[in-house]
Simulated assay, not measured.
Amino acid sequence: MTLGEALALARGRIARLDARLLLECATGCTHADLLARPETPVFGPAGAQYLEWVARREAGEPLAYLTGEAEFRGRVFQVSPDVLIPRPETEVLIDLAVDRLKAMKTARVVDLGTGSGIVALSLALECPQADVFAVDLSPEAISVARNNAGRLGARVEFRTGSWYAPLAGERFDLIVSNPPYVAAGDPHLALDGLPHEPQMALTDGGDGLDCIRAIVAGAAAHLQPGGWLLFEHGYDQGEASRNLLAAAGFKEAFTTPDLAGTDRVSGGKI
């Protein structure tokens, strides 16, 4: 089998770009190699790996889990089925956090439910004056995030536990989170490769607001006066999020849409 024949075998089964990326990852070839030397042989183990990946991609497994990495905010993050695949909508959360941190000479920040670490690491790299902490219930997710921090040179302190449990007595200038917010039974959970992603990171098993309620309720005890809470949520949860923030005593409660115009991040100031 040659490079050109390998691509042809995937035609009609998966997207051409996916096939190219899988072939490059399996063989170590480049896009230029595929264009200039399609007659290059693909030897045994690499060919077998490629064909296995094509079959798994055809069955709906996300490309990022097959290649083991995903790009976010211009950086390449390691991912595995223990963590969610980064999505561009989360950039809104980071942009809002960066805007607030840039006005602070020093700051303590915590990312609740860090997953692969995309939020915590992005803030640590883009706001070096901040001391960044990251919490996750899953030791496996913490391992992925810690590896990403080492690979990217981000200074982050990791804690394992549920929400504020590992943060007893500590206060921060900014709390950020991208918690599970999809309601149980939402048809989206069966689409776009989501069945392959960790369900505990997608849904609370209830109405989609349980984790947000816990984060909002516990935030005041862990924020400095004037500190901010920012969190991502579902397209239809903006009003409910603002109501929760107001009921918990937050001022300036707001909701910001993503680039598609969908409500995406809410927050407030204590």
Rank of each mutant, 00 (worst) to 15 (best):
C25P: 04
C25L: 13
C25H: 15
C25E: 15
C25R: 15
A26M: 11
A26G: 10
A26R: 07
A26D: 10
T27A: 14
T27E: 11
G28V: 08
G28T: 06
T30Y: 10
A32R: 05
D33G: 05
L34Y: 04
L34P: 02
L35A: 09
L35W: 05
L35K: 07
L35Y: 05
P38H: 02
P38S: 04
E39Q: 04
E39L: 03
T40D: 01
T40P: 01
P41V: 02
V42Y: 00
V42R: 00
F43T: 05
G44S: 06
G44Q: 06
P45L: 02
A46I: 01
A46F: 00
G47Y: 00
G47V: 00
A48T: 09
Q49S: 08
Q49L: 14
Q49V: 08
Y50A: 01
Y50E: 01
Y50W: 06
Y50Q: 01
L51F: 08
E52Q: 12
E52M: 10
E52H: 09
E52K: 12
W53K: 02
A55E: 13
R56Y: 06
R56S: 09
R56H: 10
R57L: 13
R57W: 07
E58W: 09
E58M: 12
A59H: 10
E61S: 04
P62S: 10
L63W: 01
A64K: 00
L66C: 13
L66P: 11
L66T: 10
T67D: 13
T67H: 12
G68T: 12
G68A: 12
E69I: 00
E69S: 01
A70F: 06
A70T: 04
A70R: 03
E71M: 10
F72K: 01
F72T: 03
F72P: 03
F72M: 10
G74C: 15
R75P: 02
F77K: 00
F77G: 00
Q78W: 06
P81H: 15
P81D: 14
D82F: 12
D82Y: 14
V83C: 11
V83M: 13
L84Y: 13
I85A: 08
I85R: 05
P86E: 06
R87N: 11
R87Y: 13
P88R: 06
E89A: 12
E89K: 08
E89V: 12
E89Q: 11
T90R: 07
T90D: 12
E91S: 07
E91K: 05
